[in-house]
Design a protein around this nucleic acid. Sequence first.
DNA 1: AACAATTTTGCATTTTTTTGCAGATATTTG
DNA 2: CAAATATCTGCAAAAAAATGCAAAATTGTT
Lengths: 249, 249
Amino acid sequence: MLKEERQQLILEKLGTDKKVTLVDLGQLLNVSYDSVRRDVIELEDKGLLKKVHGGAIAHSYLSMKPSKGLGIVNTEFVTIAKKALKLLENNKIIIMDGGTTNFYIAEQIPKNLELTIVTNNPHLATALAEHPKIEIILLGGSFYKRYQITIGSKTIQDLEHIQADLYFMGINSISLDNGLAIRHYEESILKQKMMNISRKTVTCVLEEKINRKENYNVCNFTDLSYLITSLSPSDELLNGFKNKGVEIL
Amino acid sequence: MLKEERQQLILEKLGTDKKVTLVDLGQLLNVSYDSVRRDVIELEDKGLLKKVHGGAIAHSYLSMKPSKGLGIVNTEFVTIAKKALKLLENNKIIIMDGGTTNFYIAEQIPKNLELTIVTNNPHLATALAEHPKIEIILLGGSFYKRYQITIGSKTIQDLEHIQADLYFMGINSISLDNGLAIRHYEESILKQKMMNISRKTVTCVLEEKINRKENYNVCNFTDLSYLITSLSPSDELLNGFKNKGVEIL
DNA sequence: AACAATTTTGCATTTTTTTGCAGATATTTG
DNA sequence: CAAATATCTGCAAAAAAATGCAAAATTGTT
């Protein structure tokens, strides 16, 4: 039996039962315990299930619950999150602001990473509560109902004495001539502040946001340290962005 | 049975019954008392339930969320909220902190009231997002997973320049000799600060919390402006609290 | 087909996690 | 206050995970 075939069966079983034990799988698929264990590890790396002690549980169970509108796991998110997680190291201070991509990445952070995460997104804060080793700093300020984040001068003031290692900036549009831009003025100011206090800035963008235009400019493309998309770094859609001092992942 | 599966079942049972005992859980799930006890501790650390002596009760935010549509709502909440809403007037600045009671009251606020609500409870903030006329100020700080609120010196600092009209203080215990007290030190300091910057303070207590004792004192009973319970103001359980300059509703 | 390179698999060993138990401590209740 | 319950702590057995390694299977290339 092929490995892919086996993994497919694991996912199918998981779809109906919502949970599986490794011992059961081994007997069912007639391979050693170690093989199914490795299968499950691979599937977890792809973000397709959640591995637990003794087995695995369906992903839809645990994550993606009260989040905004994303029901099914968009494969674009999975690819992006995988790249994003490589930038995380123990004991770093990370800023993450609003947006679905950041929310998904946050949920995928391994449980053993020790981090401090600073955010103006209450949903992110409550979702991260399930990560025992992550310290969460929630930024105060006016709560902007539409985007469900805090903004305003108070939020900026809360950032005043923080020095972060990495900033995950959510963004609505990215283009070479207009740089990174979003739809809301006050939020664009906040993002600039977050950039200022972070050693490095990374943005994770969905394909649809490339070469779009929005109203309020946050920064130039070259101000970034990393750009993460679901595409291969060599994809021609990214041609214009290459060799500008921004590492494309 | 997987540990996660067990914990999932505990949460499900908690969702319907609102409370469980550890002995019951042990029998139901066919594991030792100690195992379920440890499960409950883990779930509490994630902020998913509240552990009490002998068992666990549904955590406010989980149990409260479905309160919207259909109501297996504690009638005590209804009575309390009705009284509490009478204290609200247009264009007032209100502080509300954590706790189930405050969450329920917030949900019941009429849509036509124009208010500013200051809170350190992200769940309250997001729930209030559906009230078009309410301006929400979310207090920043360290996010305390267990109670799902922000606390710490940053939170206190955020309050520095605010003058509120009324403070809805969530409290764990109220007694004549010990006054109002809660279980968490840092939070007790925060509550004192909130009191200081508010013209009036009101607390809404469930019957079970009267004459209980907790570790950290917040203030004396006579420091309150109003006391709200589900009982009639003339109820004899409240005898000792009468005629002390605190209006009992 | 044959061969080398790579991947996959199973197994043995070590390390970690989970679990139940027993005694000590703490809390509740009559 | 005392009996009954419940919790906490440390511990050891059992189960599972991680690791390293060699055999087996697969793949790619002549």
